[in-house]
Amino acid sequence: MGIIKVENIRVFSYHGCLKEETKIGSDYRVDVKVKADLQKSAKTDNLDDTVDYVFLNKVIKEEMSIPSKLLETVAKRILDKIFKNDALVQKATVCISKLNPPIGGDVESVTIKMTDKRKK
């Protein structure tokens, strides 16, 4: 097994429960970590034998572009799409951070973290 991480993906999106959040948008940071068998790709040196991190980045950008009230909803969509489209992924974790959230204080970010495993 091995781990592939794509970190600090910066996205501007329109998530939130407040009306203003869905109108003006916010900056987000997304990190994804997937666990997969990387032994074959280590031997073959072939992109088709591994988890393509360009694919992971694309999934995150696509799902982050769909407005949602809760970051948990976005994280679940990201995880579902990863498992649906890449059979090599056995476990995945996604962290979504809203930067400078409008919560009435000097807060750098709020983050949700969600992990899922491939269903057998």
Rank of each mutant, 00 (worst) to 15 (best):
D86A: 03
G105L: 09
K33S: 12
Y28N: 02
K120C: 09
M1H: 14
T22G: 03
L88Y: 07
R10A: 14
E7A: 12
L18F: 11
I60S: 00
F55A: 04
D106F: 14
Q90G: 15
S65V: 02
K35Q: 13
V74A: 03
T50L: 07
L70F: 13
V30R: 00
N46I: 13
A87N: 15
D106Q: 12
G104W: 05
L18C: 07
V51C: 06
N100H: 14
I82C: 01
Q39I: 15
K84D: 12
L56A: 02
I96H: 04
I103T: 07
I78F: 02
S41I: 09
E72Q: 07
S109Y: 10
D27G: 10
G25K: 02
Y53R: 05
N46K: 15
I24W: 07
K98M: 11
R118T: 04
V11Y: 03
I3F: 13
T93R: 10
D52K: 08
D49V: 07
C17Q: 12
V107F: 10
K35M: 12
V32L: 05
K58W: 06
K84E: 14
L56R: 00
V54A: 15
K91M: 11
G16E: 01
N46G: 09
K91R: 14
L88Q: 08
D116M: 08
V94E: 03
P101C: 10
E62Y: 02
V30E: 01
K84M: 09
T50W: 07
V107A: 07
D45A: 12
Y53C: 06
E7V: 10
S97W: 07
T50Y: 08
S26V: 03
C17P: 07
A42R: 14
D27K: 12
D86Y: 04
L70P: 04
S26A: 13
K5L: 10
S13L: 04
V110T: 12
L47E: 14
H15C: 03
G25D: 01
K19L: 10
V30Q: 00
A92Y: 02
K117E: 12
V32K: 00
D80R: 02
F55K: 06
D80Q: 08
K117Q: 11
V54P: 02
Y53A: 05
I112Y: 03
D49M: 07
Y53E: 06
K23P: 00
V94K: 02
A75I: 01
R77L: 07
N8L: 09
F12D: 08
K19H: 09
A36P: 01
N8D: 14
V107H: 06
R29P: 01
K19C: 03
K43L: 15
K119R: 11
V32E: 01
D27T: 11
K91F: 08
Y28K: 03
D48P: 03
M1R: 12
T73E: 06
T93L: 09
E21W: 02
I3R: 15
E21Y: 02
S68H: 08
I112T: 05
K119S: 13
S13A: 15
C17E: 13
I96W: 03
K35S: 10
T50F: 06
N8Y: 08
L56N: 00
T93G: 09
R29Q: 12
